[in-house]
Design a protein around this nucleic acid. Structure first.
Lengths: 238, 238
DNA sequence: GCTTGTGAAACGTTTCACAGCA
DNA sequence: TGCTGTGAAACGTTTCACAAGC
């Protein structure tokens, strides 16, 4: 069987092959950025856009844009570019955001409660259907944008996941509790975790994990500021 | 002049060269992860650690760990491994977190106020010295962990940056306002921005930018969940 | 024995350059 | 003419494998 041919046929819409048999992960990340730009363009009633211009908006080359999109199908129109609404629909379908995702949140601290009020989630199809904490003072509170959500005790975690058929979880607990809660989420059938705890998590291969360590991002920023300053000095001296 | 020799001498502690003359960006990102693990090990009074074990903690190979660290110097001890406190000090020095960074925050919405209370920043040396919003209802409020910080009007942005010698900014304003505020920050001399607005920002080359789009992270998670489910199906069929 | 640091090979990603199509 | 889709080349990153050191 020829990988180059039969493989591409088989996977249809959800990801073509490179030599390795996979779509490059950086390409998947950029897909979200393309979608974000395309949605902004759609707001401005823009009908079509060329790879060159879409790339410029994001600081990428035109070839990069075309190759990224080509991993998933032939969405462009030679001589015209990409039709905005058409491409938005394709990318949503690829990313899986053409439907609703039932999500839960664990840890109703400062960050957790802020996320319960975050509008950006719902508008992309992520619906937070339950929120948990183990602090008795918080349990029973109604949090988030009205009508709001009641903070439930952690004991109800497993039952809620099953009953409400929850697919992904947002983890905002302290680092020390993160692995333990993650284990319970996985055991209860959760297939994806967005982790905000500054802690490495171990999850089985069939569970997806994305981590956001806010302090770590500032740390990286600090490094790059230092590097930029040094580069500027070198330029100045020369 | 031989790049391989003279270049390495010249840059001393802050980044050695690969063929391209730069430290790989992924290596810099992992440096923060190594630091996080090392700090946890230090808490547990661990004295030394081998590249193999440090890698295992993060799902990386031993060679990766050694190569990453070797970009910045010779920190290991053959037959022994890396001394934990020693390596922590080196990495902090490399990342620039062996000192305090004066930071400001713009946009005191749900996320912004949550970040003002986030303990993880201060413990890494990031001190938020001022907070801004343009909503008259919020201006004057005291927010964050006691003693707290007064929300200032946006007009005072430039003056505050100069007076308090602020080096980096956290941007939590709505997408529509983000570029405009970023421009003001840059003009006022800010050298690094951590952007939480779901919006592409353009900043000059000498300003560092890190972006965190929370909805985008969930979107990526959704994709990987879909991909995992498809992979499982294929496995099951075969 | 065990562990680092590092050239060289393998691998993955991006860019180039152009055939093909509107 | 303008633009996409795509092999091939260039580039960057990771892994391998081993000399050198404790």
């Amino acid at each position: 069987m020829d990988t180059e041919d039969a493989g591409q046929q088989a996977r249809a819409e959800h990801g073509r092959l490179n030599r390795n048999g996979r779509v490059p992960i950086p390409a998947v990340r950029r897909l979200s950025l393309y979608l974000r730009e395309l949605e902004a363009l759609h707001q401005k009633d823009r009908q079509t856009i060329a790879s060159r211009e879409l790339g410029n908006l994001l600081g990428l080359t035109d070839a990069q844009v075309r190759k990224d999109l080509a991993y998933f199908g032939q969405f462009g129109h030679p001589g015209v570019g990409y039709r905005v609404t058409e491409l938005i629909a394709h990318i949503r379908s690829i990313l899986g955001t053409d439907r609703t995702w039932r999500t839960l949140l664990v840890g109703a601290g400062h960050l957790g409660t802020a996320l319960l009020s975050y509008r950006g989630f719902a508008s992309k199809g992520f619906q937070i259907v339950a929120a948990f904490d183990n602090d008795p003072a918080k349990i029973g509170m109604i949090v988030g944008t009205p009508p709001g959500l009641e903070i439930l005790p952690l004991e109800k975690l497993e039952a809620t996941i099953t009953e409400k058929n929850v697919q992904m979880a947002i983890l905002c607990v302290p680092a020390g509790a993160a692995q333990q809660v993650a284990d319970r989420l996985v055991a209860a059938g959760i297939k994806g975790i967005l982790n905000f705890a500054p802690q490495t998590l171990n999850v089985p291969e069939d569970v997806s994990l994305a981590s956001v360590d806010l302090a770590l991002r500032l740390e990286q920023l600090a490094f790059h500021i230092c590097a930029n300053l040094l580069a500027a000095e070198r330029h100045g001296q020369q």
